[in-house]
Design a protein around this nucleic acid. Sequence first.
DNA 1: TTCTATTTGCAAGTAACTTGCATTTGTGAT
DNA 2: ATCACAAATGCAAGTTACTTGCAAATAGAA
Lengths: 143, 143
Amino acid sequence: MLKKEKTAINYKDLLKENGFKNTPTRLAILEIFSMTDKPITAHFIYKKLKGEINEATVYRTLSSFEISGILKKVDLRRDSIYFELNNDHHHHIVCTKCGLIEDFKESKEIEKLLSQIVEKSIKFKNIKEHSLELFGYCKVCNQ
Amino acid sequence: MLKKEKTAINYKDLLKENGFKNTPTRLAILEIFSMTDKPITAHFIYKKLKGEINEATVYRTLSSFEISGILKKVDLRRDSIYFELNNDHHHHIVCTKCGLIEDFKESKEIEKLLSQIVEKSIKFKNIKEHSLELFGYCKVCNQ
DNA sequence: TTCTATTTGCAAGTAACTTGCATTTGTGAT
DNA sequence: ATCACAAATGCAAGTTACTTGCAAATAGAA
C-alpha cells in the first residue's frame, strides 16, 4: 500500500468537503489527475500506481469521485471510459486514428443556444450537463 | 433463420449501394431501425428477432453498418452503445434517471460556431462529426 | 446450375469493469 | 492515546457487452 505523503495542493480538504476519508490511495489518484492535463482511464492510473494499489480500488474510487462531482466522465469513443478533473468546463477534439486530444472552451454563444434548446423542450426541465466532442483526423493523421 | 420478405422501403438498394449482400437478416435489422424512432442497442434488436438470429450477427451487422455510414453510434451514458439510422443529423436530451430520449436539431448558429472552433484549432484539420448530448432529469423524474 | 466470396451460427474468448467478503485503516468520541 | 466502528481496500470470482475463430450455409455472379 501507499504511504502518506505531503501534496502541494490541498486535496485533503477536497476529500473532506466531499465526505471522503483522507487515504493515501485517494491522494495518489488526485495527484495523477493534477499532473495529467488530459482525460485518463482507470487502467492508466492503475499502471502508474502498479504494485501499490488494487485495480478494483481504482474503479471504485473513480466512480465515487464522479458521483460526488470531483471528476467528470468523458466518452472519447475509445475502448474505455475517460475521466478528468471537473474544475473547468471544456470539451475535446479527438483524433479517431491516433487518439490525440485537444481541448476547447465552449463559447458563451454556444452555452446560450444550448439553454434555449432546453427551454423549448416539452419533456425536460432539469438539464445538468452535456457532452460535446468533435471527432476527426488531426493534421498528422490526415496526410 | 429469417425468410425473405418484401419490405416497403427499398433497403435492397441501400445494401447494394454500400457493398452488402441482400440477406434477410440485414433487411430485418433495417426494418427495426425504420420502425423505431429512437436509438436502440444490439440487444434490443436481438430480442426483437429472438430465435431467428444470432446475437453475434447483430453485433457484426451493426458494426459494418456503422462503418459504411448507414448507422450512427450514439453514446447515451448507459450500459451499452446505441445506434440509429444516419439519415438526418440531430442530437439528444437524455434523462439519466429513466432513460427518456428527446431529439433536437442543431441550429445553423451552433453549426457555425462549431466550425469556427475547428478553424481555430492548431492540431486538427479534418473534423468529420461531433457528439452533442444533453443530460439531466425529465419533467416526470424531476419531481 | 455451379462456384466462390460473403454471411451466419455457434461456442469460446476477451476487455472492462463490478461485487462479495474478509481485513485494514482513518476518524471522531472517550 | 486508545477505542470503536464505519469506511476503504485487497483479493478473487463474477458479470456484461461485445469479439473472434471456424465450419456450414447462402447470395449473387458467371
